[in-house]
Design a protein around this nucleic acid. Structure first.
Length: 461
RNA sequence: GCCCCGGUAGUGUAGCGGCCUAUCAUCCAGGCCUGUCGAGCCUGGGACCCGGAUUCAAAUUCCGGCCGGGGCGCCA
């Protein structure tokens, strides 16, 4: 056995069995004209066999794509030929053979097998076809998610999600933010409203965190100054819609020494633009595969005060009842209106009225106009992607607003303590990565953006 | 939590009181084919969510349950 470092396949993504023969030397996408005429080992799923009798074309799929293995009966013998071409679809095999240039093959070459090995036989029938000519319901796909993700167009969503998340992270790091991790098992709910998942913590009542809100603000009293976190958030809201999950990925940001919410919006805007640009540049092929055309959104994102949004809607003939907060219908109409009027998809709704933020005790209210807060939403074509703003950092005011919202300051002692010994003014936001991806890729349901979505009914897989 | 809609072969569907021994496609099995690439052609296989009720007769109507889809509320 050669040492790990001397193994010739060290730099290629193959694994090796006892006899040290690599099971894969190349992904299908890595084979170039330089390989023509040489022997190579490839591996993957046998996605389809076209058996013409004396010759059979096998489609072997790996992460990089699909390549053709051409089996010829006369050369393999009737027995060997039969054994190979009768393997069930989606079985995993490794094939060693000569790479031969051939214009008749889609990739421009084919592999003529000299040896092959069955690594894993697939049962029949498949619970979900990977290359079948019929579709499947999302529910069926989720029940068989591992099969579903074998489809390149589904895998593309998750590869793009990875690139997008990386882009957002990079932007924040560039802007001087420190990535942190806060507890997901907590003793009390952060905010009013959303329902919490209760659990038993060594005999004490505890909850799954619905938001890192209290902790990221707490961190503003530490001197880290600028923090962010990408982590799951849990909401026991029995929401059954195409844009809600019981467990979603929340990108949370908090920054110290903000003077107005404009400082926070600047962070949101730059991060959003950087992230999307990064995804377009790094994932162009994947976007093409999904037939999605994306441009970096123009800056600056329009800032529209909440009250002006209401006026805009009414001016357009949308009925918005007096003293009633904008609902989903209004948000969608506003998204359309912004698009029609200015051709823009990204915008901020700013200066949320205080009366709709009563439970949000940490929201800062304008000094000169206490009926308005420094809170904003970032909307994308009518979908709320982010919300945040300038926080209230004065202990006495936070406490008063807590009581006003019907909460007991005593229950938030760990949080309030951080305000007692020097808390800089700060602000931040929560940002839904899945929702952004859903909008960018034009996906009908947010569950498409999550490998194993958790919703009201689904706990498995 | 509220309001609509739905559950038929492995998958996706048609049928919506008797023409149902349930349609079509895909899929699976077998057969033919040495250039397929949505392969083609021939033969065959496989299903009415569960429990009650109405009826001479229920996939079809009614009730309950379970499951799914959409919307609202709330939010990311």
């Amino acid at each position: 056995m050669r040492s790990f470092l001397n193994r010739p396949s060290f730099s290629v993504p193959g694994v090796s069995m006892e006899d040290d023969k690599p099971l894969r030397e190349r992904y299908s996408s890595e084979i170039t004209p330089e390989d023509f005429g040489t022997d190579l080992t490839v591996a993957g799923w046998l996605q389809d066999v076209r058996n013409l009798g004396g010759i059979a074309f096998l489609q072997l799929r790996d992460r990089g794509g699909v390549l053709q293995v051409t089996a010829i009966k006369k050369e393999m013998g009737p027995e060997g030929f039969r054994e190979l071409v009768e393997l069930p679809r989606e079985s995993v095999i490794t094939v060693t053979g000569t790479v031969q240039e051939n214009d008749q093959a889609k990739a421009g070459f084919e592999v003529l097998p000299s040896s092959w090995e069955l690594l894993s036989r697939a049962e029949v029938p498949l619970p979900l076809g990977v290359v079948d000519k019929v579709g499947a319901d999302l529910d069926t796909r989720l029940d068989n998610r591992f099969m579903d993700i074998r489809k390149p167009e589904v895998a593309a969503i998750f590869r793009l999600r990875s690139i997008l998340t990386e882009g957002l992270r990079r932007s924040l790091v560039d802007q001087g933010f420190v990535e942190v991790a806060t507890p997901k098992i907590v003793s009390a709910g952060a905010e009013g409203g959303a329902t919490l998942f209760k659990l038993d913590y060594f005999g004490k009542p505890a909850y799954l965190a619905q938001s890192p809100q209290l902790y990221k603000q707490h961190l503003m009293a530490t001197g880290l100054d600028r923090v962010f976190e990408v982590a799951p958030a849990f909401r026991a809201e029995p929401s059954d819609t195409s844009r809600h999950l019981a467990e979603f990925t929340s990108l949370d940001v908090e920054q110290a020494y903000v003077s107005t919410s404009e400082d926070v919006m600047a962070t949101v805007e730059r991060m959003t633009v950087d992230g999307i640009r990064y995804m377009i540049e790094g994932g162009q092929e994947l976007l093409d595969q999904l037939i999605v055309r994306l441009d970096v959104p123009p800056q600056p994102f329009r800032r529209i005060p909440y009250d002006e949004c209401i006026d805009m809607l009414r001016g357009d003939g949308v009925d918005v009842p007096e003293d009633d907060e904008m609902g989903t219908e209004h948000e969608k109409a506003l998204g359309q209106l912004v698009h029609q009027r200015w051709g823009e998809d990204f915008y901020f709704i700013t200066d949320f009225p205080t009366r709709y933020k009563v439970g949000t005790f940490y929201a800062h209210r304008h000094e000169d106009r206490p009926e308005l807060t420094g809170y904003f939403d970032m909307g994308v074509r009518g979908l709320e992607i982010a919300s945040g703003g300038k926080r209230e950092h004065r202990l006495d005011v936070v406490t008063a607003q807590m009581e006003e919202g019907g909460l007991r300051p005593a229950d938030f002692e760990f949080y309030l303590k951080a305000f007692r010994y020097g808390m800089p003014p700060h602000g931040g936001f929560g940002y839904g990565i899945e929702r952004l991806l859903q909008m960018l890729l034009g996906l009908p349901n947010i569950r498409e953006t999550v490998l194993y979505p958790r919703d009201r009914q689904r706990l498995v897989p």
